[in-house]
């Protein structure tokens, strides 16, 4: 039973770390004030974002290994690898499997960020690929609520609602800041002029 408790704990910690990473990632693009202190804070948000992402991947790995090895629920290796084929809570576990695969893609794109900047073509696709982290987060939220043994206890609702509020808030902050930057930055204004003739 110990493994089962550890597996559940690892899953919850992975979800908390994923929330932290998504929030910090969204906030890493905010803060356009041109002074050294706000630039340094952006660098720190990036570092914290990457650290939280590493914790997420590590805890997810632990969660998957423990859930498969544990004998309390009968989950086979193919059942864990192929989405929606698990014998135990098939749909909910399928969401988790899909989340794990998309997280792998997001994590690789994050790790290869500097290398992808080397060519103009790959850099253009980087943001779209990495933004699928929001989908990963939604999938893992669904997986947690539907598959979680603790779902229904008061503290899980506090946890999920708190995490959802944090991600929604960070996303709104990011969009608001991007919009303001777009309308005030002289370079962005000049680009708009060139590409659309000034029409937004």
């Amino acid at each position: 039973m110990t493994l089962w408790y550890l597996a559940r704990a690892a899953g919850l910690i992975a979800f908390l770390a994923a929330t932290g990473s998504v929030v910090l990632g969204a906030l890493a693009s905010t803060g356009h004030r041109a002074d050294d202190r706000s630039r340094d804070r952006r660098v720190l948000r990036q570092l914290a974002h990457r650290s939280a992402a590493v914790v997420t991947v590590a805890m997810l790995g632990l969660h998957v290994v423990l859930v498969v090895t544990d004998s309390f629920v009968d989950l086979s290796v193919p059942g864990a690898l192929v989405p929606f084929t698990a014998g135990y809570r098939g749909f909910a576990l399928g969401l988790g499997t899909l989340a794990a695969y998309s997280l792998a893609a997001v994590a690789v794109s994050g790790a290869a960020r500097g290398r992808l900047a080397a060519s103009a073509r790959s850099a253009r696709h980087w943001r779209a690929l990495h933004a699928s982290a929001y989908v990963v987060w939604l999938l893992s939220l669904g997986h947690g609520i539907l598959a979680g043994t603790d779902t229904g206890r008061w503290w899980t609702w506090v946890l999920y609602a708190g995490c959802a509020a944090a991600v929604a808030g960070a996303l709104v902050a990011r969009l608001v800041v991007a919009d303001r930057h777009e309308s005030t930055s002289p370079l962005a204004a000049a680009r708009r002029q060139l590409t659309t003739g000034g029409v937004r």
């Binding site: 041109a34 630039r39 340094d40 952006r42 660098v43 103009a120 850099a123 930055s185 370079l187 962005a188």
Partner: peptide
């Protein structure tokens, strides 16, 4: 620096 993309965030100067 790829000047078509640089937006003047300035993080490079800190690092």
């Amino acid at each position: 620096v790829d000047w078509t993309r640089c937006d003047g965030h300035g993080l490079c100067a800190r690092l």
